[in-house]
Design a protein around this nucleic acid. Structure first.
Lengths: 229, 229
DNA sequence: ATATAAACCGAATGATTATTCGGTTTATAT
DNA sequence: ATATAAACCGAATAATCATTCGGTTTATAT
């Protein structure tokens, strides 16, 4: 795939994924952002496989040398991009956790959560082709797993505050299920037009409700059909 | 990623994705299967990014030359593998469509469909890393889209036989939603242990029920909470 | 037996691309 | 002004792999 991937040699900065340096001049600080923006745009346009360092540099109007001045290697750029995406998710979760969840109905929670996450997916549309391939890009696999754990932990805390009656283990499983359900469907919704999108959003909320309601006494009556796990 | 991808030149057999030839000798027929099996196994072990033609040949104990005797290029191998996976899905749908769906309850249908699909995912575990990255591998993007359409068409027909009251457009949307829901969750389930797996399977069925029930008069009473779209 | 073609080998080829590095330009501090 | 370091350039380097091809082995038909 690339000249190198995982040899033992470490000529200079091989494993590093952090930005090479925090630029001191404002021009440089600007560049790190521009590099990420350009990469995101190209990712959307040409896909992960045709994304080369030269392409990024050309599109931005700088040289590859300048690129490597800020990031130690290509993976670091993708990693920074991934991190930026994950921070958006974290920020959405922050906002949700700032609410008075103890007094929320499940419907209120789902309206809030799904709508808020949908915003993130919409705003970061450029990152979607990254998000889709996240776990299949070696440079991002770790980040992805780490992120999943993080999200699930946060969801568990939220579920607790919503009054869920389930063991930690079961809550973890619920968190993962909710996470995967939401991720898969939001990816669909973002690519749909308004009418279809709104219907699928409603469907997503309905499915999430069916998933979570059995674990909350208050909502159990509403779904007579489900057998508790 | 690779020496070549999409230049204008066509030295020999560039765009071809079909197997180079149907082998005449039994030894050769065996080989095409072995190549696919080995590739699938390696895909599971090392992932798509470290999968090289040399690795496949070595692992099988043949030369790269022999590999190219049967497949015109690496993509063709992945394509054949993808096709094999999609045929399994098609076969599962066939089996479902052979049932007397007109007289099935939604629960009966979901039990059948989810369990049957789960079998496919379990049996083809080696293909999961392929299935995950399906749409992000250029060689398979077309196949993937084509397959999605196919599955959705089949689902629409099934939904009709189940007595769904919805326009074709809405039925199509439902098909996609069901397809994505199922795919995402089955990928999770296959990697879970027995107890967790069975619980998540139950969750999946419950979510699918919540998705589909509003479109079927017979089941509407059971879910008072949902508002029809 | 022997001719014919399939099956196979693997070193050589060629393309591609991440990364480096010696040198140039530009900004900032004194 | 001028020294210092940041920011930048881009041709050259090095690695990796998909693919080719001339030749060898093996099977099958006559």
């Amino acid at each position: 795939m690339m000249p190198r991937k995982r040899t033992g040699k470490t000529p200079a900065a091989r494993g590093r994924l952090e930005p090479r340096r925090l630029p001191v001049q404002s021009r440089g600080r600007e560049r790190t952002r521009q590099i990420l923006d350009t990469t995101a745009r190209l990712l959307e346009q040409v896909g992960i496989d045709d994304l080369t360092t030269i392409l990024i540099a050309d599109k931005l109007g700088i040289s590859v040398g300048a690129l490597y001045h800020y990031y130690p290697n290509k993976h670091a750029i993708l990693h920074a991009l991934g991190t930026r995406w994950l921070e958006e998710i974290a920020s959405a979760l922050d906002e949700i956790e700032r609410q008075d969840l103890e007094n929320f109905s499940l419907h209120e929670f789902l309206d809030l959560a799904v709508d808020r996450l949908l915003c993130v997916y919409k705003r970061q549309r450029a990152m979607l082709s990254l998000a889709q391939a996240f776990s299949s890009i070696p440079a991002l696999r770790d980040l992805d797993e780490q992120h999943d754990c993080f999200v699930i932990q946060r969801l568990m805390a939220i579920f607790r505050r919503l009054g869920f009656s389930a063991s930690g283990n079961e809550l973890n499983r619920l968190g993962r299920t909710f996470h995967e359900l939401t991720h898969a469907l939001l990816l669909v919704i973002v690519n749909q037009h308004t009418i279809r999108a709104s219907r699928t959003t409603a469907d997503l909320k309905r499915m999430a409700f069916a998933l979570l309601a059995p674990h909350r006494k208050e909502d159990l009556t509403a779904t007579a059909v489900v057998e508790p796990p």
